[in-house]
Design a protein around this nucleic acid. Structure first.
Length: 341
DNA sequence: TTCGATGATTTACG
DNA sequence: CGTAAATCATCGAA
C-alpha cells in the first residue's frame, strides 16, 4: 500500500527528468501529509495529461520509453491486466454475430445482375458489337441506342469500381494503422486479441456502411439509366421497310397457313435482323388484324401476290427450272378467301 | 394535335 | 408452350 506514493513519486520524477519544462510546483508538495501528497500527485498527473498536446513527439517518445523501462512497469501492467480481465467480460456480451444485411445482399445481387459488379463484361460488349455489325444497317439505330446505354453503364461501373477500390484501400490503411497503434499501445496497456478483432470489425462495419451508400447510389443510377434506355425497348421502333416486306411476303404466300415453323421463324428473323420473338409477335399481330378486316388488307395481299408471281416468273424464265412449287401455290392461296380462319 | 398503324405486352385457353 | 384476342404505348403522317 505504501508503495503507491513511492511509485507515483518516482514516476513523476522520471517524468520530470524527461520534461524539464513542466511546472515544478508539485514537487514541493512531497513534504506534506499523505492525503495531500496523493491529491497533489493526481493533480500533477492531470496537469501532465492536460499539457500532453503541448509536448513534442520526441518528448512523448522519450516519456513512453521511460515508462516502459520503469522497474515497476511489469507489476503495474499485470495489475491492469487483472482489472481488465474482470471488467472485459461485460463488454464481450455486446459482441453479437450480425447476420448479412438483406438489403446489402439485395443491392449486391442487383449490381451483379446489371453487370456493374462482378467480372468485366468485355466479351459481352464485343458480342453485342458483333451482333450489331452482323445485322448490318437494319440494327444500326437499335444498336446506337444500345451502345449509348452500354457506354453509360460502363461509365457507372468504372466510377463504382474506382470508388469501391478507394474505400477498400482506405479501409485497409486505416485498419493497419489502428492495428499498429493498438499493438504499440498493448505494451503499456492490456489489449486482448479479441479487442483488436472487435475494433477491426467495427472499422469494417463503418466502411461497409459507406460502401453500402455507394452501392445504393450506384443502384439508383442504374435504375434511372434502365428506365431511360432499356425500358425504351417498350418505346418501340417500326421495322424497316425491307423487314416488313420479307415478313409480308412470307405471310401472303402462306396465307392458308400463316404459321411459320420454328426454323422458318429463325430464318425470317435472320433475314429481317430482328429476333424470333419479334417474328412471332409480328405474325400474331398480322394474323389477328388480317382476320379482323380482310378487306382492308386485300390490296396489300394482291400486291404481294403479284410480286411473288413476277419473281417466280423471272426465276423460272432465267433459271428455266422445272420445279417451282411455291409459285402456283402462293398465287392460288392469295386469291382464296377461305384462309386460315 | 389527332388518329390510324404498329410493335409489344397481357390475358385466357386448349 | 404457342396462339388468339384485347390492350397498351408509341410512331408517323396529315
Amino acid at each position: 500500500m505504501d508503495e503507491q506514493p513511492r511509485l507515483m513519486h518516482s514516476h513523476t520524477g522520471v517524468g520530470m527528468a524527461g520534461h524539464p519544462g513542466l511546472p515544478q510546483h508539485m514537487q514541493e508538495g512531497t513534504g506534506g501529509t499523505d492525503g495531500d501528497g496523493r491529491k497533489q500527485d493526481i493533480g500533477d498527473i492531470l496537469q501532465q495529461i492536460m499539457t500532453i498536446t503541448d509536448q513534442s513527439l520526441d518528448e512523448a517518445q522519450a516519456r513512453k520509453h521511460a515508462l516502459n523501462c520503469h522497474r515497476m512497469k511489469p507489476a503495474l501492467f499485470n495489475v491492469l491486466c487483472e482489472i481488465k480481465e474482470k471488467t472485459v467480460l461485460s463488454i464481450r456480451g455486446a459482441q453479437e454475430e450480425e447476420p448479412p444485411d438483406p438489403q446489402l445482399m439485395r443491392l449486391d445481387n442487383m449490381l451483379l445482375a446489371e453487370g456493374v459488379s462482378g467480372p468485366e463484361k468485355g466479351g459481352g460488349s464485343a458480342a453485342a458489337a458483333a451482333a450489331a455489325a452482323a445485322s448490318g444497317g437494319a440494327g444500326a439505330d437499335n444498336s446506337a441506342e444500345h451502345s449509348d446505354y452500354r457506354a453509360k453503364l460502363s461509365q457507372i461501373r468504372q466510377i463504382y469500381h474506382t470508388e469501391l477500390e478507394k474505400y477498400e484501400q482506405a479501409c485497409n490503411e486505416f485498419t493497419t494503422h489502428v492495428m499498429n497503434l493498438l499493438r504499440e499501445q498493448s505494451r503499456t496497456r492490456p489489449i486482448s486479441p479479441k479487442e483488436i478483432e472487435r475494433m477491426v470489425s467495427i472499422i469494417h462495419r463503418k466502411f461497409s456502411s459507406i460502401q453500402m451508400q455507394l452501392k445504393q447510389s450506384t443502384c439508383e443510377a442504374v435504375m434511372i439509366l434502365r428506365s431511360r434506355f432499356l425500358d425504351a425497348r417498350r418505346k418501340r421502333r417500326n421495322f424497316n421497310k425491307q423487314a416488313t416486306e420479307i415478313l409480308n411476303e412470307y405471310f401472303y404466300s402462306h396465307l392458308s397457313n400463316p404459321y411459320p415453323s420454328e426454323e422458318a421463324k429463325e430464318e425470317l428473323a435472320k433475314k429481317c435482323a430482328i429476333t424470333v420473338a419479334q417474328v412471332s409477335n409480328w405474325f400474331g399481330n398480322k394474323r389477328i388484324r388480317y382476320k379482323k378486316n380482310i378487306g382492308k388488307f386485300q390490296e396489300e395481299a394482291n400486291m404481294y401476290a403479284a410480286r411473288t408471281a413476277v419473281n417466280a416468273a423471272n426465276a423460272s424464265s432465267h433459271g428455266s427450272q422445272a420445279n417451282s412449287p411455291s409459285t402456283p401455290n402462293s398465287a392460288g392461296e392469295t386469291g382464296s378467301f377461305h384462309c386460315f380462319l
